[in-house]
């Protein structure tokens, strides 16, 4: 049974999505995408995914909105008017219906018997929990266990999994961010102007300081 706050947030989320799709003023749409991300961040917090909520609030509501606004300042403020076409609407409708049909097979939210919870996560939690409990009793005992499994021994198990058990993956993700930024720089950056940084806006500096 969903909490009332969840229902309210989902209704807001849905409304925002529909309004974004229908708006022609792109500036307003950009601001609404920020609100959409903020609502998602609220939902993630309720679902105890605080890490994801941080990211969504900072990237989705903050940085990405600024990026969209930057893009708008380079392109157009209003959507290009097109005659209403029926075929794209049908295609999108069928795709959406198929996606919703797909979710029917997914395990219920918070189901402890769901497949992802039964395999490795249970093992990680078991190892870390044992290490953590044994740390309290005998601090000197190394985090070593009968099964020969080594524990990381951090209080926050998410960090343990992310940075140690899954250290390779996280290294790969960092490399992806690196590569993506190089791509953006190659595509977007104007040639570096070689002028020595001209005394940047004297009057602006004065008001700043």
């Amino acid at each position: 049974m969903p909490l009332p706050i969840e229902i309210v947030l989902f209704i807001f989320l849905l409304t925002t999505a529909v309004v974004i799709a229908r708006l022609e003023d792109l500036f307003a749409a950009a601001m609404l995408t920020g609100i959409f991300s903020l609502l998602s961040a609220g939902l993630f917090t309720i679902m105890d995914a605080v890490d994801v909520a941080f990211t969504e609030a900072a990237v989705g509501a903050g940085v990405a909105t600024v990026f969209i606004l930057c893009t708008l300042s380079l392109t157009a403020k209003r959507e290009y008017q097109q005659p209403t076409r029926i075929l794209p609407f049908i295609v999108v409708g069928i795709t959406g219906a198929a996606l919703i049909y797909g979710t029917l097979d997914m395990p219920a939210y918070g189901d402890p018997d769901a497949v992802p919870h039964g395999h490795l996560s249970a093992k990680f939690i078991e190892i870390e929990e044992k290490a953590f409990l044994s740390q309290d009793k005998h601090a000197a005992e190394p985090a070593q266990h009968g099964s020969g499994e080594k524990a990381v021994g951090l209080p926050n198990i998410v960090t343990s999994i992310l940075a140690s058990y899954r250290g390779y993956d996280t290294f790969g993700e960092t490399a992806v961010i690196f590569t993506a930024t190089i791509g953006v720089m190659l595509l977007l950056r104007t040639r570096r102007r070689e002028k020595k940084v001209s005394p940047p806006n004297r009057d602006q500096m004065e008001t700043t300081s």
């Binding site: 940085v63 600024v66 990026f67 930057c70 893009t71 300042s73 380079l74 960090t159 940075a163 250290g167 996280t170 290294f171 993700e173 960092t174 961010i177 690196f178 993506a180 930024t181 953006v184 720089m185 977007l188 950056r189 104007t190």
Partner: peptide
């Protein structure tokens, strides 16, 4: 390792902002 991720992400986001805003 987390410090490395943090530095890369901060600098990546800022660089993308410079690239986008610098064009305008």
């Amino acid at each position: 390792v987390e410090l490395g991720v943090g530095i890369t992400v901060t600098c990546a986001m800022t660089t993308i902002f410079y690239a986008l805003a610098g064009r305008g």
